[in-house]
């Protein structure tokens, strides 16, 4: 598995991955502009763009940490795109054949590959989160940020970055499943993005009680430290369950299906 991990790291030299990282930072910048500059007297639910806190909530010690979580869905979409591009691309280019000839133990190959991609995404999300913290301070000219600097504030911000990272990795696990299931980068990306935005949003509108158990809602709740519908513990356990189920199903399919591409 270590060999597969090291092999995958070579592919991260491709510009596509660094472009995706830049897109994540750009999404974080947009999120921070909305969350910091857009804070008003009352909180405002922006759907996939998260919850813009009221100014008073924003100025609390956990105001910054909670606001970072607003980027979860958009960063998640980038993550799912990047993973689906990688995994689906192995089928598209036929490179999976070469990899499997060199490492026929498929679970080891998938494990190493996924670990490398998840590491890249975790690192990128942490850097993006830290960039978000920096941007928030730059944008907070009309916000009292004193509470953010306290021990509680720093702990909440760290938890915010950690929650965001966990949410992005949750999305990434769905990307692995989409790439393996659909065996095409374009189709996997299309299906994943279609699910993350219109499909899940529609489901939350038509079946709110059930929809809160959907992965996107749980990942967003995880990144935001809980929502009115989902408490943090439920968000963590639910997200872990979705991610584990996605990875197990992906591994099962990858292990047993013929490689005909």
């Amino acid at each position: 598995m270590v060999a597969a991990f090291l092999s995958e790291m070579v592919k991260l030299r491709q510009r596509t991955y660094w472009l995706m990282a830049a897109v994540m930072v750009a999404f974080m910048a947009i999120t921070m502009v909305m969350s910091i500059s857009g804070a008003g007297d009352a909180p405002s639910d922006r759907g996939p763009a998260g919850l813009v806190l009221a100014l008073q909530q924003l100025q609390a010690s956990d105001g910054l940490g909670r606001s970072l979580g607003n980027a979860a869905t958009f960063l998640g979409i980038v993550a799912v795109t990047l993973i689906a591009l990688n995994v689906g691309g192995e089928y598209d280019h036929g490179t999976l054949r070469n990899l499997l000839v060199r490492q026929p133990r498929r679970i080891r190959l998938l494990g190493g590959k996924t670990a490398a991609l998840m590491s890249f995404l975790a690192g990128t999300t942490i850097v993006t989160g830290l960039a978000g913290v920096g941007m928030a301070h730059l944008l907070a000219s009309n916000v009292d940020t004193t509470a953010w600097q306290t021990r509680d504030g720093l702990t909440a911000t760290t938890a915010g970055v950690a929650g965001l990272t966990a949410a992005v990795l949750g999305w990434a696990s769905l990307g692995v499943l989409a790439g393996i299931l659909l065996r095409s980068a374009a189709i996997a990306i299309g299906a994943a993005v279609a699910y993350a935005l219109p499909v899940e949003i529609l489901l939350t509108v038509v079946a709110g009680d059930v929809a809160r158990w959907l992965p996107g809602q749980l990942f967003q709740a995880l990144a935001r430290g809980g929502t009115p519908d989902v408490n943090p513990t439920t968000a963590l356990l639910g997200s872990a369950a979705w991610a584990t189920a996605a990875m197990l199903l992906a591994a099962l399919i990858f292990r047993h299906r013929d490689v005909t591409n």
């Binding site: 092999s7 995958e8 592919k11 060199r102 490492q103």
Partner: peptide, 9 residues
């Protein structure tokens, strides 16, 4: 080749 070489160790 590095991708495959590393995979094969």
């Amino acid at each position: 080749l590095g991708v495959l070489g590393r995979l094969a160790g």
